[in-house]
Amino acid sequence: MIRTLTDEDRMIAEVAGELFVGHPVIPATDEPVARYDAATWRHAAEVGLSALAMPADLDGIEGFAALGEVLVAAGAALSPLPLVGSVVTAQQLIALSVAGEHRAALLGGLMAGTSIGTLVAGHRGGAVRVEARPGGPRLTGAVDAVPDGVTADLVLVTAAGPEGVTLYRIDPADAGFTATRTRSVDLTREYARVELAGCAAQPIPTHELAAALSRVEDLATVARACEQLGAARRCLEMTTAHVRDRIQFGRALGSFQAVKHQCADLAVALDDAESAVSHAIWASGESPESLPVAAAMAGAVCARVAYRAADTAVHLHGGIGFTWEHPAHLYFRRAVSDTAVYGDENHFRERFLAASGIPSPNASNDDPGPSPQRSPHQQGVTP
């Protein structure tokens, strides 16, 4: 099955596309600096981007279809806005696992755009430990590759304790909290290393948190697949425009058979990615039980296509494609960084097998399970 878009969905995507005009912005440096400011995000929230895929009883816009279209546009522009980290990950986790007045209180500022949220997945691999103290629980540990970890003012942390995984809220102003921007291959996203040193934490009442975390991971995979689809589309557009206009040996570069074949093969691969994303978005709303399989499929296909499209763009642009002044390298950096932090095609194939109930040939009996996210620096792919 594939998604169907309403007129409202298309209108929202069109407005979002206008916000992204002029992106990507080629940075002056590869130092880890702020990629956007609160004013920019508030402007985006005013047109409803922060309320996408949120409950209707909180004046949200239900359904993932409109958000998917916005994410495709964001990926094409390599937008630095916190759509995946805040709107998809943090807000979806709250909407799925927190009820009543707690949910409304946490989502209010996020949906209005006055706050930015992030999730520190400390339960993975026991990265964050919980210590019971007289004044309340304290958290200790460190997690890399936290999106918008410095910018966010609503910080959620998951940690495993004696009673299982618990969701906590921490105050970024707490003396035990440190968030440091880290160098990344991707110059259009913000990543941070979050360190907790006895940080005071407020437990948040939740229900079915484990199921919510699993669904949020799938939704985040779909969201990144949407961005990767948009980035791949833009790479193909840039490349075909260049080879059409570039004259080489008295002929348009695109008239050479080898160049034609590369562009045609990439166009076919994009069709595959489009189908995988459409199915995953449909599954997110209409068939939740099939979402894990659909998300893994979209993740595998789009991770491959985004890298291939960016690599092709760099090479077919010739000498200019290797320069700092041309945006091709930003798309390549995004593709490499996504693979390093969130997983490559093989990672998502493993998830596909697991979600399908098929034993993986690479799995072992003592498999410790998912490992914590690693920063691009840890993966050995720093600039």
Rank of each mutant, 00 (worst) to 15 (best):
I2C: 01
R3K: 02
T4I: 06
T6L: 01
T6A: 04
H23F: 15
V25A: 15
V25C: 11
I26R: 10
A28P: 07
A28R: 14
V33Y: 01
A34P: 12
D37G: 12
A39H: 08
H43I: 13
E46T: 11
E46R: 15
S50M: 10
A51R: 15
M54L: 14
M54D: 09
L58M: 08
E62I: 01
F64R: 11
L67T: 10
A73W: 05
A74L: 12
G75V: 10
G75H: 11
A76H: 11
A77W: 07
A77P: 11
A77V: 08
S79E: 10
L81H: 09
L81K: 06
G85L: 06
V88M: 12
Q91I: 11
L93V: 07
L93S: 07
A95H: 06
V98P: 12
H102T: 15
A105W: 02
M111N: 05
G113W: 05
G113F: 05
T118Y: 04
L119S: 01
V120A: 02
V120D: 03
G122R: 04
A127K: 01
V130G: 03
A132V: 05
R138Y: 00
T140Q: 02
D144Q: 07
V150N: 06
A152S: 15
L154I: 15
V157K: 05
T158F: 02
E163K: 10
V165G: 07
I170P: 09
P172C: 13
R181Y: 11
V185S: 13
L187C: 03
Y191C: 00
Y191A: 00
R193I: 00
V194E: 00
L196M: 00
A201V: 08
P203H: 12
P205Y: 05
T206C: 14
E208F: 11
A211K: 06
A212N: 05
S214E: 14
V216T: 14
V216Q: 06
E217L: 03
A220Q: 11
Q228T: 00
G230D: 02
G230R: 00
A231R: 00
R234Q: 10
T239C: 03
H242I: 01
H242L: 02
V243E: 09
Q248H: 05
A252F: 11
S255A: 14
V268F: 03
A269L: 13
D272R: 13
D272E: 14
V277T: 05
A280D: 02
A283D: 00
S284D: 01
E286V: 00
E289T: 04
V293I: 06
V293Q: 11
A300G: 13
A303W: 03
A310D: 10
D311N: 11
A313F: 08
G318A: 10
F322P: 08
H326I: 07
A328N: 14
V336L: 15
V336K: 12
V341M: 08
V341G: 03
V341C: 06
V341D: 04
S356D: 10
S364I: 14
D366W: 12
P368Y: 00
S371L: 09
H377F: 09
P383K: 03
P383A: 08
